[in-house]
Each structure stands twice: as structure tokens, then as C-alpha cells.
């Protein structure tokens, strides 16, 4: 019992010394430490941009996809039976998510509500000039065009259409942006890890004799490694402060300027809270992880223990 407590006290002391050593060495290798921190900062700002872009593109894409419907009109003279046939044929298509029938009477009622002129006009006509219709939703954007073609072939269908061209292009452009951003971020993270690793390497070399002595007098490998891992951690965490602030302020400003304005109805951004909060945490975690991975590499490579 008492021994356990002593062990814990000892472990704490080793931890405390490690932290102290890490702080010291960040200042000792000031220029390289600054370089690492700056690199982390730049990387994490780009990570933040990537997250903002990706999340919002996903958000916009999702909301666009929700609007992606095929409008199907039946022939003027369809029977009820034919309507049923059309509906079941459409439902048979695998990728169809949802089919909603809207009869010409329903259309008429809806139209009459738009304006009085329309109401008068429609009431004065002998027959209903409108068509029975279906609104079809598909599971994925890329299913739109083939499904539309298939529906056109169904007996009793007069037309089937969707917002051809533009929607697909926007979404595929978004996907390119997303992939490019993620690729760039991964590359930058690797570069940062290498830079941090080099910083730690320098610390290890500058403390060579100290490490030699520590090994001779019986420091455990963990307590030799700990300060270096902490140093990497520290560099990463310090490097994530500015990106976190930039994310919070930047996104609030962006949201105010773009997201809530009615001029761009297509750009509807994700609400700042709790989005910026999660993003900041992600930045902090990435910073800390990159720092520790970088230092782990240096420790494994240059600290032969």
C-alpha cells in the first residue's frame, strides 16, 4: 500500500521533471521550435479551412440532394388503373427512394390558391387542363439521369424531368474541391510531423551527453523518452492556439457575411455553434497528435535505447 503510494509520487515527480525539461528545450532550440510551431499553425489553419469547406459542402450537397426530384407527368387520358401501374413501375426501380402522387385535382386546388385570376380561369374551364403527376426521389444524385430515362419508357408517362446538368455539375465540382482540400491537408500534416521530428532530433542531439549519463545511472527508457514526447506535444498544442482563434472568429464573420444572407440562397452555411467548438477541439487534437507522432519518430530514430 505505502509502496504503491511512493511509486505514484515517484511517477509524478518524473512527469513533472519531464514537463519542465520540455519547456526548457522548446526555448533552447528557439528558432527551430518557432518554425515547427509556425508550420503547425499554418497547417492547422488549412485544416480548419478544409473542415469548414468539407462540412459546408456536405451540408449544401445534402440539402441540394434533398431537392433533387424527378417530376413525372402522366398522359392526359390515363385511367386510374394506369396511374396505379405507373406508380408501381416506378417503385420497382431499385434506386427510387420515394414516390408521391399528385392528382390533377390536387394541382388545381393548389394553383387556385396562388392567385385569383388563376382561380377564375381554372373554374371557367370545362376540363382540368392539368396533368396527374408523380414526384420521385432517388437515393443518390448519380441515379437521377438513368432513373429519369427509365421512367420515360413506362407506358402512360408523358414526361419525366429533373434539373438536368447544373445540379450534377455543382455537386461533382464540390467533390473535387473536397478531395483536393483533404489531400492537401494530409500532405501538410505529414510535412509538419517531419518538421517537428527534426526539432526533436535537434533537442536529442543537443542533450546527447545528458542522455548518455541518464542511461548510465539507470533512468528508465520511459523517463528518458517522456520529455521529448512532451516537447512534441507542446509544439503541436502551441501551434494550434492561433488556428483555434482564427476558426472561431473567422467562422462567425463568414457566417454573418455569407451564410445568413438571402442574396445567396444556395450558400446556406452550418450554424457556427457548436460547429466552431468541435472544429477547435479537432484542431487541438490534431496538433497534439502530430506533435507526438513527430517526436515519437525522432525518439525511435535518434534515441537508441
Amino acid at each position: 500500500m505505502r509502496k504503491e503510494v511512493l511509486e505514484q509520487v515517484k511517477a509524478f515527480r518524473i512527469l513533472k521533471n519531464s514537463i519542465r525539461d520540455s519547456f526548457k528545450s522548446v526555448f533552447r532550440n528557439f528558432s527551430l521550435s518557432i518554425a515547427s510551431v509556425l508550420c503547425t499553425t499554418i497547417t492547422l489553419i488549412l485544416v480548419a479551412i478544409a473542415i469548414v469547406v468539407t462540412v459546408n459542402v456536405n451540408y449544401v450537397t445534402k440539402s441540394m440532394e434533398k431537392e433533387l426530384t424527378i417530376v413525372v407527368y402522366a398522359n392526359r387520358d390515363v385511367t386510374d388503373e394506369q396511374i396505379n401501374n405507373i406508380e408501381s413501375s416506378i417503385k420497382k426501380i431499385d434506386v427510387v427512394d420515394n414516390v408521391e402522387f399528385k392528382s390533377k385535382e390536387e394541382w388545381k386546388l393548389e394553383m387556385k390558391q396562388y392567385s385569383e385570376t388563376l382561380e377564375v380561369t381554372l373554374d371557367n374551364l370545362d376540363t382540368n387542363p392539368l396533368l396527374d403527376s408523380f414526384v420521385v426521389k432517388v437515393k443518390d444524385v448519380k441515379d437521377l439521369s438513368p432513373t429519369t430515362r427509365e421512367i420515360r419508357k413506362i407506358d402512360g408517362v408523358q414526361s419525366a424531368d429533373y434539373g438536368e446538368g447544373m445540379v450534377e455539375e455543382i455537386i461533382s465540382a464540390f467533390n473535387v474541391i473536397k478531395t483536393a482540400t483533404i489531400g492537401m491537408v494530409i500532405a501538410l500534416i505529414i510535412v509538419t510531423a517531419f518538421l517537428i521530428s527534426n526539432t526533436i532530433k535537434l533537442t536529442i542531439f543537443s542533450r546527447r551527453s545528458e542522455i548518455d549519463i541518464m542511461r548510465l545511472v539507470g533512468s528508465s527508457n520511459t523517463s528518458i523518452r517522456l520529455p521529448f514526447v512532451f516537447e512534441g506535444f507542446l509544439l503541436g498544442v502551441i501551434g494550434s492556439f492561433i488556428p483555434m482563434i482564427v476558426t472561431v472568429y473567422g467562422y462567425f464573420i463568414l457566417y454573418e457575411k455569407l451564410g445568413s444572407s438571402a442574396t445567396f440562397s444556395i450558400v446556406e452555411l452550418v450554424k457556427p455553434f457548436p460547429f466552431v467548438f468541435y472544429t477547435s477541439i479537432i484542431l487541438l487534437v490534431i496538433g497534439a497528435l502530430v506533435g507526438m507522432i513527430g517526436s515519437a519518430r525522432a525518439v525511435r530514430k535518434y534515441l537508441k535505447i
Binding site: V9, K10, I213, M214, V217, G218, S219
Partner: peptide, 10 residues
């Protein structure tokens, strides 16, 4: 003292 600090002595 460094030798003893290294092994976590008080």
C-alpha cells in the same frame, strides 16, 4: 544529485 533525480528519488 542528477543520478538520483534520474531514478526518481525525493
Amino acid at each position: 544529485a542528477f543520478a538520483l533525480e534520474c531514478i526518481g528519488m525525493k
